[in-house]
Each structure stands twice: as structure tokens, then as C-alpha cells.
Computed example of a mutant assay.
Amino acid sequence: MPDISIKEEWNDTAEEYFKSIVETIREPLLVLNEQLLVISANRAFYDLFRVSPEQTLHKHIFELGSGEWNENGLRRLLLDVVPYNKQFHDYLVDYDFPAIGHRIMRINGRKIVQQEGISPLILFAIEDVTERVKMEKAVNEYTLLINYSPDNMARYTLDGRYISINRAFERLIGMPRSKIIGKRLGELVAPPEMTRLIKAGFDQAIRTRIEAALQVKLKDKYLHIFVVPEIDKEGNVVSLMTFTRDITSLKKTEQELRENEEKYRTLVENANDGIIIVQDGIVKYANMCMAVLDESTPESIVGTPFVDHIYPSEIPKLLENYRRRMAGEYVPTPYETVLRRRNGEPAPAEINAAVINYHGKPADLVIIRDITERKRAEDELRRREWEFRTLAENSPDIIV
């Protein structure tokens, strides 16, 4: 009898000791018997899942809550723990729990063998890894984004050593990652001038704690580089990142545009016809020939209302044609009209106009031809024709 009493006392003490250990563990923990009934749960379990001991103790693990632990994979693992003395680690349960919403739980389970004659127990440890899994997913997505980004990305120590690079950067430099990581800026293929500019960008980013932008030339390539400081919680710059974009094709396009613009500007400026651009009823551009026709200068024409350059009797017709063109309606061109010179005198003109896009908005491109001499010639021709007809009608002789 004394031996049995001592054994029972030891079991009671061991149980209390075991429960104390379970209670002090920060992660949620269940203790199951071999029938998978919950015989103990710690405070962390009750707090996390917002349940009471009455809802938990002596319940089957698969019947807890809304059956969140009755998941096929987890069920097989638990049923194998006692008979086969197995343990499992890092099993993930992704579930919408009734009281706490969607969570991802990492489960570890193992068998605890007690003294002979006492049934084994199962420790069922739970860790909420929702935020960690989200973070790992975000890091993986971020890594994929960096590696497959068309922009060249690199990360540096404050003294300019390469910490990491993406695949685009490898292609830009023409070296594998293994030969780049750990090297200092300037030890690779970059020319001294480019290295100097990038170091200046580094110094600016460290000093101002904001990104620095610069353009550099590497061999036959033009590069646009953003230097971004990485700042810790204390506000200290701990590393630097560069985002490099190859803008060679953009530079080439800009050069071609400038050349084409210069060609068209030369053509327009030296045209024999007056050319103006009218937007919202205001003259936005006028060439030299238009200034000659107006007897003024291009600068004095730009910014004035278009109607100021139309002879009063012609204003209704030209405004109606302008309205119809801007509305997308058909307007026959060319047509004749009369403009008003700066001194108020009429100037016969022939107008050919079309709608264009100017600085992102619709505008009227108007080509104006001075027909003063043509009108004079037509008037002279009509006068001579009248004289000849008068002479013929009043002559006593027969004119064939």
C-alpha cells in the first residue's frame, strides 16, 4: 500500500508539474489522450481561439469549434501518432475560424510516453503563422518581380559594394552574379566618369535621405538611374538601391523628333504661305509669312483672337466654318475670304484648314495664301474684257 500511495502522489505531482509547463508556453497548446480527447489546454489556446474550457476540455479534437481540425491530412497524421509512434512538424491548416476569421496555423504533434501502465499523451502545438506566411509570399513575389523586371536593379552597401542584383543587371553588365556580388562600384566595366556620377548620386541620397536621379552613358547606351536610400526605423540609411533603365531607344527617338521638328519648323518658317494654329479661338502659332501678310510680327500675332485678323464682313462665315471643322463636320476647302491687316486694310486670301492635335488638344491648322495680286490680275482681266466687249458692241465694223 505505501508503494501505491507514493506512486499516486508522484503521478499527481507529475501531472501538476506537466500542467504548469503547458500553461507557461506562449503558443497555443493542447494535450490529447490516445482517443484524441482534449485533457488539457493552455491559456494561449483559449485566448487565441476565444473559447472557454467548457467548450474545449473532454471534447474530441475533430469536434472542436466548427470542425476546423477535422481536416483530412491532419486527421491521418493524428491517427498515426499513437499506434506508430510518429510525430509531425509544420503542417499548415488554412481555415476561416468562427471567432477570429481567416488564419494559417502551423501544427506540430508528437507522442509523450509516460510510465508503464499509464496511457500515452499527444502534444498538439499550434502556431499562428498567418502574417509570416503573408510576408514570405510577399517576399517571394517581390523577389520574382525584381528578378523578372526589365529594369536593372542592384543593392549596395554604403561604401558601394554590391549586395544583390537582378537578372537584368547581369545582362547589362555582361557578367554573372557570382562575379559581381561583393565587388565595389567602379571595379566592373563602368568608365570612371560614370562611376563618379553614380557615387555623387549615392552621396546625395545618403545626405538628403531621398532618391536621386541621374543620366549616364555606358558605351553606346544611355541609362537613367534612380538611387533610392533604404532607411531603418531609426531613420538611418542602411543601404542603397539603384533602378536603372536603358533609355537608348528613347534618346534616339527624341533625337529623331528634334531633327524632324527642326525640318518641319524650317519648312513652315520658310513657306510662301501664311501658317497659323488656332486653338479655342486664339492664335497659338504664326509663321513669318503670316506676319508679312498682317504687316506685323509673329510675336504680335500669337495670343490674339483669330477674329481680330478677319475683315468684319467675313467674320460670320469664317466662325461658322471654324465651328463646323472643330465639330468634325465637312467644310469644303480651299475657300476665299478677306483678312484684316494690322492697319485695318482688307487682304484677299485663300484659306485651307484642317483639324490637328496641338499640345494634347484639338486645334485648327490654317494655311493662308495672299491672293491680292491674283485678285488684281482678275480685276484687270475683267476690266479689259469689259472694254473689249464695249468696243465690239459699239463699233460700226464687224469684228470676228
Rank of each mutant, 00 (worst) to 15 (best):
E23W: 05
G360Q: 05
Y156L: 10
R171T: 10
V51C: 15
I399C: 01
K19V: 03
R76F: 03
H102K: 15
Q87P: 00
A392M: 09
E34M: 11
W69E: 02
V189C: 11
I368E: 05
T297A: 06
R161D: 07
K219H: 04
E141G: 12
F169E: 14
K183M: 13
K183N: 06
D308P: 10
E15F: 15
A190Y: 13
A354F: 08
E385H: 04
L74D: 01
K7L: 15
Y162W: 00
I122R: 07
E345P: 10
A377W: 07
H224D: 13
E269W: 14
Y17C: 13
Y156K: 07
F62M: 11
I61D: 00
H102F: 12
L30V: 03
K263S: 01
K19I: 02
D379M: 12
P362M: 06
P176Y: 08
V238C: 02
V93S: 12
P298I: 05
Q87T: 09
S149M: 07
E141W: 12
S20Q: 12
L123R: 01
F243L: 15
P229E: 02
I25W: 04
T56K: 01
S52H: 13
L223G: 08
V238H: 11
E68V: 03
H58Q: 15
A138E: 14
G186E: 05
M153D: 02
E345R: 13
D96L: 00
T56N: 02
V278R: 06
P334D: 00
T372P: 09
F88P: 04
G174V: 12
Q279E: 07
R167I: 10
G160R: 02
D246F: 01
I165E: 09
R26E: 07
K233N: 06
G344E: 10
V133C: 04
P53F: 01
T337E: 11
L319K: 14
A44N: 01
T248H: 04
S149A: 11
K361V: 01
R132E: 09
E314D: 13
Q35L: 07
P28D: 00
D379Q: 12
G328F: 08
L57Q: 05
A377L: 15
L79I: 14
